[in-house]
């Protein structure tokens, strides 16, 4: 849960509910329209679950999708 104003998802320590271990930043390969890019996102070191926060999905991820559509 986000509490103080201005706190961003990446500022929080997230825990994988299934594995009970903290998520860690690591490389993740994203694919869109046949293009693949590798970026760092929080993920579970045990099960590989990747967290894409709403801010990331609607922010830089949407921007990248638009850039690839405009290419």
């Amino acid at each position: 849960m986000m509490n103080p104003k201005g706190t961003q998802p990446e500022d929080l320590v997230w825990e994988c509910q299934a594995c009970h271990v903290n998520l860690v930043e690591g490389p993740v390969t994203l694919m869109y329209m046949g293009n693949r890019i590798t970026v760092d996102l929080p993920q579970c070191p045990r099960c590989g679950f990747v967290l894409v926060s709403e801010a990331v999905a609607l922010g830089k991820m949407a921007e990248v999708e638009q850039a690839l559509e405009d290419k």
Binding site: N35, R36, E63
Partner: peptide, 21 residues
Amino acid sequence: SRYLTELAARMVWTLGSRELL
């Protein structure tokens, strides 16, 4: 050209927006 597209996409990701690129 795929390499150019992927580089541009990674730059957008790192910078945060197409405008900044």
